[in-house]
Amino acid sequence: MSTTQLLANRIRQNALKMVHRAKASHIGSALSITDILAVLYGEVMHFNPTDQHDKLRDRFILSKGHACVAVYSTLAEVGFIPKEQLDTYGEDFSWLMNHISHKVNGVEFSTGSLGHGLPFGVGKALAARTRGETWRTFVLLSDGEMDEGTNWEALMFAAHHKLTNLTAIIDYNKLQSIDSIANTLALEPFVDKLKAFGCEVHEIDGHSHELIADALTIISDEKPTVIVAHTIKGKGVSFMEKRIEWHYKNPNDEQLAIALAELELSHA
């Protein structure tokens, strides 16, 4: 198992324990993006856990703020926050609130209302461009979030201004909050739409670390990059995969034990 796969496995285990302890929602959404986070933080991004404001760092924005346990867990694994802090998730007054919070060391931006991360990321990419700095901005969005017009506004702006230092990753797990994407507001032909908006688009398996790393590393000469990552909501825990109820449910003691055992097994 590669380093990033080991990292992804630990992120998943932490995330499961956090939502179990806090009786919190959105574990399916967190498991869906874990491999992307493991590759970003384990291989692609430049960052400095001892200085969250390091000027040369790459910026990461989680626009689907409800999947925050995956990011908190990642930040603990790479050294931004102590691992013990994960135990406070969801407690009263914990910094680790249930939508991602900029008050946590290593988090650039609070979200929770969908459609805010990409415009903010466009601003960051524009700032780097204006100052002639070489760091990159990565924004991770959900597929349901693409219902928000702000994302399309932001893509138009990014393409018009040739923000090649901006990479949006869309977690295309095909499930929204109460039904599938297809039954809610169909995104297809999704890749064609994104291309028509002027983006460089890579369509990949969002759980293949090799493909994720490749897609994250390529930078177009003249277009912002969008990675359409085909993913499985609840990935890694058999009884959560592709099941909409795990957008809300949290595992009971027995389910947690089974989930962790499955992950241990895949780890071995």
Partner: peptide, 20 residues
């Protein structure tokens, strides 16, 4: 920013977060 006020304000916040 064009006729797109939500993106305009969001990207303004992004720029401001970098010290502008």
């Amino acid at each position: 920013a064009g006729v797109a006020e939500q993106n305009m304000m969001g990207l303004a916040a992004g720029l401001a977060s970098e010290g502008f």
